[in-house]
């Protein structure tokens, strides 16, 4: 991979730091009038998701990271790996539980996910912002419930538990915001 100098650091650039693939979030060039210049850089460790803050001497460089964001369709799991397919080439990618992380509770077959590949292997899986899932279990709604009423827990086909309005019943499909894990509406009729 090519090397990138501090003045080429831009948000989104993928570089290697301490052996970890990172994405640059911010790069601030600082210099106290006369004297030596530095770059204060914020990077996200793509494996752990942690944000690192580092100061570099201006002009220092980091090796680029072989990182690629691709859109893949979730196929199935064999219990150990989660398999995603490239809808164009039909190539399959096996992602471990580490890579899938919290996204596991939003995995739905044939749905498209943003998968970050590092040296060709998935390291993170990001769900779409909204996803429609079926409710497999929830208490029956009570008589007289209205749209303004309270809420109750509902278990979804993926095993995730979300709070839904009382008028929603078992077997219905609902729309969820995966960023907050909150109910949005009944699923659009297809």
């Amino acid at each position: 991979m090519a090397n990138f100098s501090t003045n080429e650091f831009k948000p989104g650039l993928k570089v290697m730091l301490d052996g970890e693939p990172c994405s640059i979030l911010e790069n601030e060039f600082v210099k106290p009038g006369k004297g030596q210049a530095f770059n204060r850089v914020k990077l996200r460790n793509l494996r752990s998701g942690r944000v690192w803050e580092r100061t570099f001497k201006s002009g220092d460089s980091l090796e680029g990271a072989d990182v690629l964001d691709v859109e893949l369709e979730y196929s199935y799991t064999d219990g150990e790996f989660f398999y995603f397919m490239d809808p164009v080439s039909y190539d399959q990618h096996a992602a471990g539980a580490d890579a899938v992380g919290d996204t596991q509770k939003w995995l739905k077959e044939q749905e498209k996910y943003e998968v970050t590949l590092y040296n060709g292997a998935p390291i993170t899986v990001t769900p779409p912002n909204f996803i429609e899932l079926e409710i497999t279990e929830t208490d029956p709604g009570l008589k007289g419930d209205t749209a303004q009423g309270g809420s109750k827990p509902a278990t979804l086909a993926t095993g995730a538990v979300v709070r839904v309005p009382l008028f929603i019943s078992q077997g219905e499909a609902i729309r969820i915001d995966t960023r907050t894990g909150e109910y949005v509406s009944r699923a659009s009729k297809s």
Binding site: K31, G35, Q36, W52, R54, T55, K57
Partner: peptide, 17 residues
């Protein structure tokens, strides 16, 4: 985390900015 091997004035510059 800062670069290693900065001389005294280099460190003063860093602390200044």
């Amino acid at each position: 985390e800062i670069p290693t091997g900065l001389d005294r004035d280099g460190l003063l510059d860093l602390l200044f900015s």
